[in-house]
Design a protein around this nucleic acid. Structure first.
Lengths: 215, 215
DNA sequence: CTTGAAAAAGTCAAGAGTGTTTGAAACAGG
DNA sequence: CCTGTTTCAAACACTCTTGACTTTTTCAAG
């Protein structure tokens, strides 16, 4: 009678399935989510339809809509999934001590790799769509904000010596963000060139200058 | 019998109408194109449908499809229109002698204004859609490339003293492009902050340093 | 005034996409 | 073995979009 399940599919997460008949359900859910992300990357937001997602996930559309009643539910789950994945990957990349002790270079290379990753592309597609879709924006914004905050915190940990004077740190942070994201957008349609590498190297020296000024 | 018009609507342009019964036709065409651009800005590429464009242009859909047989024809015309408009506006902005003789600042402010303009937003929407749409890409790429080349040439004219050694000039060019476009993308969903202005001021000083090094 | 072509408007069918509903198969617990 | 729940599948109804087709209006030329 009651349509509310007793335990599974409860609030949100993908993996709270505490050993029931199915954590297969969770498996299917991630399968769907990853198919959706693949579609975002390969087809863009506009052409990402429930039909295509289901086909790519190897499920019938009906089966898929059992797990996610509406398309927006899939997107919502994908945003959460992407947010978690991106954050984990970024932290992991930043956590390891650079072999040459060069934290600045590590930070730049790390974010540049991050921006070239399909996950960023998927996130980007959703971001662009969200500009003209209030419902999407409501879903995306919290995750986007959380990511930026987390990234900022992580960077602060990476450069503890910058913690005193935030002025230059913020400037370096913003500069890096804009340069690399600008390059990332360009990278969506063009190849990475020698000129791009030169920009990154230049950025690196400038960040180090900013750090020294602050010392 | 023959469906080929005698003179009007010939190849492409919008204004070759040499005083016939209608250069009203041309007027209507630009009306449609501008409506399409407005839709791109307000609704995004995905929701820009022929129905909405016609409504925004104040025409019946049938009338519109008389001027542009298919939707892609409208987009194609919009790309050409945007390309021409952006180029003209950019050149005009760069052409005027800065009151304080500060060409670098003029260039930065000029491109930053350019990126904040709706025309850039429309172009951007098409660009993103073109990533996963070969047909669109075929339309967009030539215009995009031409614009970048033109912009580069214009910049060279603006800084003739940099013409000798292209190394630093290119670096400054790329850096500026990436920073400002990165900021522009961010600006699509966020407001311009004091931090952004600081980045622009920093960029300005760095460009001048690059120029001095090259002297 | 007549005429014919272009502009504008309206109608139509086909297709795609979404979400709901209905039905079957798998499976745990009594 | 039976029952109720969960997963999966299929069919349906509805809307939206597109492009083709048909009709009306405008207007310059003869």
């Amino acid at each position: 009678m009651a349509t509310i399940p007793h335990e599974p599919l409860s609030p949100d997460a993908l993996s709270i399935g505490s050993g029931w008949q199915a954590q297969k359900s969770a498996s299917t859910r991630t399968q769907i989510i990853e198919a959706a992300i693949t579609c975002l990357v390969e087809l863009g937001y506009g052409r990402t339809t429930t039909t295509v997602i289901a086909k790519k996930a190897g499920l019938s559309r009906g089966a898929m809509l059992h797990h996610f009643p509406s398309k927006m539910d899939i997107i919502r789950a994908a945003v959460e999934y992407l947010h978690a994945k991106r954050l984990r990957a970024f932290r992991k990349a930043m956590a390891k001590e650079p072999t040459d002790g060069d934290h600045v270079r590590l930070g730049i290379e790390g974010y540049w790799s991050h921006v070239k990753h399909p996950w960023f592309v998927a996130f980007f597609e959703i971001s662009v769509a969200a500009r003209t879709d209030k419902e999407l924006a409501a879903i995306l914004f919290p995750a986007q904000e959380a990511f930026e905050r987390e990234w900022y915190e992580t960077s602060l940990e990476l450069f503890p010596e910058w913690k005193r004077k935030g002025e230059n740190f913020m400037l370096g942070f913003d500069l890096t963000r804009y340069v690399i994201e600008g390059m990332g957008i360009s990278f969506l349609t063009h190849k990475e060139t020698e000129r791009d590498k030169r920009v990154l190297r230049y950025l690196e020296t400038k960040l180090k200058e900013l750090a020294d000024e602050d010392r």
